[in-house]
Write a protein that binds this DNA or RNA. Sequence first.
DNA 1: GCCAACGTTGGC
DNA 2: GCCAACGTTGGC
Length: 145
Amino acid sequence: MRYWLYKSEPATWSWDQQKAKGDVGEEWTGVRNYQARNFMREMKIGDRGFFYHSNEGKEVVGIVEVVREIHPDSSADDPKWECVDIKAVMDVPNPVTLDRIKGEDKLKDMVLVNNSRLSVQPVAEDEFAHVCTMGGVDPKQAMKG
DNA sequence: GCCAACGTTGGC
DNA sequence: GCCAACGTTGGC
């Protein structure tokens, strides 16, 4: 299993809205960047990820799971843009802010820290576990399929 | 609201 | 195929 991070501006699509979709989940539409799209092409059903609020909050607020693999983005005019569907799995009780992440030596290589503009990005397994712990989530719970 | 970083576009 | 101009993202 691999781990990911999805950014969303809460004003556009918030964690509460994602949770309201329940286990059916929702298409992760709107990605218009090749790097981000290519990462979504690598995703498998069951892969876990972080839901991150950009701009407002700047924090990891939830754990999500891939429920449908790559397919055309229904919001795109051009079929080259594709996406996956994800569902909310659990809250992160103590949202992990970007500031806290930047303060952790173990997380200095996170894509979030080094490429702030990439909206869908991979997270290393140990990074994922560490952020879970910081957020008050049991990594075993968050990382099992 | 500003601007740095990054991606894309298009002229040459 | 280079690179200047432009647009967008997202942290500050």
